[in-house]
Nucleic acid binder design. Structure first.
Lengths: 199, 199
DNA sequence: AATATACCGTAACGGTGGTAATATGGATCG
DNA sequence: CGATCCATATTACCACCGTTACGGTATATT
């Protein structure tokens, strides 16, 4: 009998490949991420990745899931820091924006509109749910502590859409770089959070 | 001397090619838009389009500009209809959402995050400016007539970002299809317009 | 009619993601 | 210990992509 890949072998390879793929993606953009260079950086032949992933699409979905996961990490970390609920809630919003701008490649990957029909990977599904849950957690805190009133789920979605809208307009170049982004962002956050604040 | 292409010849060909390219793009998506089939549908050889466009990127920018232009048309048409300023303003918002959903391919094209570095075509620049101007025109009306208060430019940008955020979350699959989109959209519009309404 | 040249088509190149056939090498058994 | 086997890895190859190179064609001027 030949050597069989153990579960952990497969998982390790997948994990390592996702790291390399993400690095390549960040370094050279969507067009620069190709199977040959990815395989070369992994130190294997061009076809080996196909033993661990169905196709390139599945790899894209996998690194998308990782991006969602790291995104959720950042938001949770911001929420976990000490301070009053409004301070912590604000920290989550700032973490959102910082991630979107500093790791814009990954943010683009997460919310890309014209992706070639992504593979319905369970890990991607889970990562999206987790990121979304984190988006409502700080709202839940604000409501529980009496700073906000309303349905946390709905409020979270509205705040999310607001941040996402401003950020994506910026990333697609629709909002100029001469401070317009900052002004619109601050105003949007002021209006949205003000709408749910208890008086 | 050989026959020289007149200005109108070039413009006509470009226009016709943009129509065909848009149709092909809508029909088969970003991956389905390739130079060979585009040329075939134009009834010319694969290389002829390169006489009128630098490369595929420039074609993409051109049809993007056309999409922005049609988008602006829809918004202006909505604003031009009879009714009270709030009704007309609301009509613009509805037209925005309808365009984004019904012509989602074109909306994706317009605001795609991971585009391969678009060509800085002047017509694209102009079309973007026009679409953006339309986004603030109805706000200007509302402010002038006393329904809104504040800076029309800023308010327009915030409203735009809000709509854009909800719509793109929907298009990227982040907002479920079981009515969640409609609820979040209605809530976002309620909050945003409410924030600027005079009491 | 001869010529020059803007225009268009054909052929081909390098590169892509992906399939099929082949080679490799460690685990198992005689 | 050596023969065998089969999961794994590699090589060769394919169809397609955007694009370059270049030769053919047709037309306006001489």
């Amino acid at each position: 009998m030949p050597r069989n890949l153990s579960e952990t072998d497969v998982a390790d390879f997948r994990e390592k490949l996702c790291e390399v793929a993400t690095a390549l993606f960040v370094e050279k953009g969507p067009e620069g991420l190709n199977m040959r260079e990815l395989a070369a950086r992994m130190g294997v032949s061009a076809m080996t990745p196909y033993r661990y992933f169905k196709d390139k699409n599945e790899i894209l979905s996998a690194i998308r899931a990782r991006a969602f996961s790291r995104f959720a990490d950042q938001l949770e970390k911001a929420l976990a820091q000490p301070g009053t609920p409004p301070e912590r809630s604000r920290a989550v919003g700032l973490a959102y924006v910082r991630f979107a701008l500093e790791q814009s490649c990954c943010y683009r990957l997460m919310f890309d509109l014209s992706r070639p029909r992504l593979a319905p990977l369970p890990e991607l599904f889970a990562a999206e749910r987790r990121a979304r849950a984190t988006m409502t957690d700080h709202v839940r805190l604000m409501v529980r502590e009496g700073y906000f009133h309303g349905d946390p789920e709905l409020i979270g979605s509205v705040l999310w859409a607001g941040l996402h809208g401003v950020v994506t307009l910026r990333l697609s170049g629709a909002l100029g770089e001469d401070g317009e982004f900052e002004v619109v962002l601050a105003e949007a956050m002021r209006v949205l959070s003000g709408a749910y604040r208890t008086r």
